[in-house]
């Protein structure tokens, strides 16, 4: 019985951990631009196309269905996935914009951001390493 309770406890703490996962916004280590939380949201909604220093910004998304992306959508962009889909379909089908490019994994995200000063991405804080610079946490 106590094993069972323990298992539930472990499961519950794991669950709450994944819900409370912290998101880190990451850029290339050489990128010195300041990035406010408004900027992050504008960049990922296609409204802002350059960093504060004037360099072009290219946002990178994790693939659809990823838990980290869901958390990013709800905490940073304040939208659920169907609202975002409706938002992008308004832009995509009217020639006004295209959604950010996607990568399949955290490793791919790290590799891209670490090699391109124009890119900005996000990861679960636990997946971030020293190859990138964290500009904000949520």
């Amino acid at each position: 019985m106590s094993k069972f309770i323990k298992a539930i406890f472990v499961l519950a703490s794991f669950f709450s951990f994944s819900v409370l996962a912290e998101i880190s916004i990451i850029v290339h280590p050489s990128n010195a631009a300041s990035v406010s939380s408004d900027d992050v949201s504008r960049i990922f909604l296609g409204k802002k196309k350059s960093f504060s220093d004037g360099n072009t910004v290219v946002p990178i998304n994790l693939k659809e269905g990823s838990d980290t992306r869901e958390t990013f959508n709800s905490t940073v962009l304040n939208k659920n996935s169907s609202q975002l889909k409706a938002y992008w379909s308004k832009l995509v089908f009217t020639g006004k914009g295209a959604p950010p490019k996607e990568v399949a994994s955290a490793a791919e995200m790290l590799k891209l951001i670490a090699n391109n000063p124009n890119m900005i991405g996000y990861l679960d804080s636990s997946a971030v390493d020293a190859s990138v610079k964290v500009v904000a946490k949520y």
Binding site: K85, A86, S89, K90, F93, T94, G95, K96
Partner: peptide
């Protein structure tokens, strides 16, 4: 933009046919 485009008469003109939007 140049070519065949949507006339922006209304708020939803641009995506009239995209019911999902």
């Amino acid at each position: 933009n140049a070519g065949r485009l949507r006339i922006p008469f209304f708020r939803y003109s641009d995506f009239l046919d995209v019911g999902y939007a």
